[in-house]
Design a protein around this nucleic acid. Sequence first.
RNA 1: GCCGUCUUAGCUCAGUGGUAGAGCACUCGCUUCACACGCGAUAGGUCACAAGUUCAAAUCUUGUAGACGGCACCA
Length: 894
Amino acid sequence: MELAKAYDPKSAEESHYKRWEESGFFAPEINEDPDAKPYSIVIPPPNVTGSLHMGHALQHTIMDVLTRWKRMQGYRTLWLPGTDHAGISVQRKVVEQLRKDENKSPLDIGREEFLRRCWVWKEQYGNTITEQMRREGASVDWSRHRFTMDESLSLAVRNVFCTLYEEGWIYRGLRIVNWCPKDKTVLSDLEVKEETRKDGKLTYLRYPIVGTDRTLTVATTRPETMLGDTAVAVNPSDERYKDLVGKMVALPLTGREILIVADEYVEAEFGTGAVKVTPAHDPNDYQIGERHGLEQLLIMNDDGTMNAAAGVEFDGLDRFAAREKVVAMFDELGLLEKVEDYEITLPICERCKTIVEPILSEQWFVKMDEMRDLALGLMESEGAPHFSPQVPHEKVYTSWLENLKDWTISRQLWWGHQIPAWYDTDGNVYVARTADEAREKAGGSELRQDSDVLDTWFSSGLWAFSTFGWNGAVTETNDLDTYLPTDVLVTGRDIIFLWVSRMMMLTKKFADKTAFRDCVITGTVLGKDGKPMSKSRNNGVDPIEMFDKFGVDATRIYLASIATGADIKWNDNGVETYRNFANKIWNATRFSLLNSEGAKIDHSSLMADALPLADRWIISRLNQTALDLNKALGKYEFHSAVSMLYHFFWDDFCDWYIELKKDEINAGDVEATTRILTILEIALRMLHPFMPYLTEELWLKLPGTSSELNNPAYSKADASIMLTKFPPGDALALNGSAESEMNAVIEVIKKVRNIRSEMNISPSIKFTVHIAAERDLQDVMEANKAQILKLARAENLVISDSLDVPKASAKAVVAGNASLAVPLEGLIDFDKERTRLNNQINKLAEEKSRLDAQLSNQNFVERAPAEKVDALRERQSELAHQMNTLNNNLEALN
RNA sequence: GCCGUCUUAGCUCAGUGGUAGAGCACUCGCUUCACACGCGAUAGGUCACAAGUUCAAAUCUUGUAGACGGCACCA
């Protein structure tokens, strides 16, 4: 069978995924071993509004590498996929669609119809990302695909909510919350980001003091909130204002009189030392208000416009217009002291970037005291989750938990899990699992359900166990029993608090298990400009484009080559490197197949006695690589795994082993070809988790592959590399003497090549190589004569105890007190050879002087480990010997 | 304000107290019958800076500078 000259990823990508999926290879049920240990991962469910970005591609690659690796090891492996309903995102898309297509608002069509449209939207667009995951080669069990608003998962949400309410962990209360006037919903602290603006203003307003002609100046960044002031506060020990405490100020523009109170919160040194107090629009003012029994005057509507309480002149005015108007009116009244430039940090809505308004509102909250203790307890007792990399994430995670505030879980949206709480006409609340249950509790009064839905992260927080069938009504399933705790969670830093922590808490609370033992935190893939990829920066790189340009496998293994947790600037170059690597693998296979008549995969062929050096060497290297590879993967060190695969395959297997075996292969040596094919087959297995398409494509072409090579756990399944046994590596197959002998051969070849290149001798000119060495090494050289001749492009090899060559020779030293020479009568340039020898001598001299200094240091000799000292001494004497030889060579030229 | 990360070759990045590494780019040579997405040979580093610990520091400690992240505050 002849392969094309270059690897074309497209055809491989198109043919294998469907077969794998349809054959049930991704489902854990493919494993027939009743004693197989489980291995499970749940995917961080991407938003149904999302499409694949590089962060997904990175995380999915890591999850798939782990899944394929464990599956090949014979674990009952499950990678569970799914999607998140993404409350605000979907709602916004549907609202926008409605406005554009029909010029209607959600209120025009009503809740029921709006929700129907959301479902239609989800059905239509919600599987973009799942289709893209198929292209990625993600070996997820599609039969277990979950959506956060599936019936069972929704039931789980209602049951969890009710239980937490009954136990007092969920409450409804009036608090200052983060309000997004554009989305018209409350947001949790984590959904609010900060933006520093240099063009902020600090406005100083004068409030006249009643019964005097004095004024009191307050400073504010939000002048419009003065319309809701119900007090002015000063520090109790502030001498300037001591006599004013208890007096009233006449609040301009409102006709109201408000009290001057003393409160420790106020810092005398900051600003004017007097603070306007707006309890309904500021969290600190709210606290002051509580302490002093102040009125909470709400002056804004949910869209950020002022309401009637702000006064007729302001009613309906946008908050920023109101701000200007307040300042202008103070100015007119002569009460505007000054306006200063002020750098200000504003809270903004993470999604729509609108400035968030702190506002007093009645919402649902989860009390975090016990939740926090659950998560901290798991960290303390089990060290769970164990973060990779551990620094800095473990500390950030625990210190965040230690300072946790209550979680606002209600959202003023329609798309999501509607809060299972009902109100009677008197405003009494009945939390119940169903409307019937609520009616029963209410004793027949007329009820209406809370119109809010729950924070999307509330349902995601249940993901680790709700996806395995837990819904509160059903609390025991095979999957829960088998796959929980999951083994590892792979995600980004940005959702450690939003999701990771909550999943740990809620899984412990309701399934009484650890959600996952390990947590791999990936870094951020940055744009070429070094900044996070974003639409506004237009620096995004589309994974699909990379797949098209370089292939899925090249993109995957490049992503895996990034150090775990490290951020990386995207560069196409990196992917190109692995595109080339894929082509190298393709061509190595192509070569192996060219002369493969009569040969086939045969693992026993590697066990045969008296194999040639190159074979003993590559088998040792192969096993070392397999051992190191498994170790690296076990520690989530994907980058070092990739690096060792790359160098084993390219350097050891292609550059040396194949080149050394070429003559045998071309001569039709069936045994040699069998070994090459067998080693290649094992190498492909090791590469499979990273490069599933290429390896499957090639593996199926190898002679002798069949389901008999499958891991016994999959013996009844069709043949596929993804079901073979992952090479564990065998420490007994390591062969130190073969490695050192091979290294000697390699060194000889490299030295001769160096002579040819430095002396500008054309590759077409064949010459004789003389080697002088001790007896053992002579035998090695003799046994590998043909290989040395071929790779050094020489026609003759003379091996002896000492060099006997004409003056016109180029010489070099090799390890083991050996030396070599190439007679170059008529070709040698003596000046060049002198320079070449001098360069070598200088290099050795540099190393030797460092060693001499170190070894003459009495402290080092006495205190460093003896074997270290011995090794350096040995190297020192070798260097001396080599320098001596080279100096003699140099003299001989004169 | 508190906590933390990063700074290594021209570029992008590995590096685990013991002789500084890779890929790409650069230079030189090669239509060697798997691969020019290739092969061979070079060159390229004050490991940000300073001090300390140590026989020995890119690696541990402290400080400085620059880049960045998280949290808190923000009248």
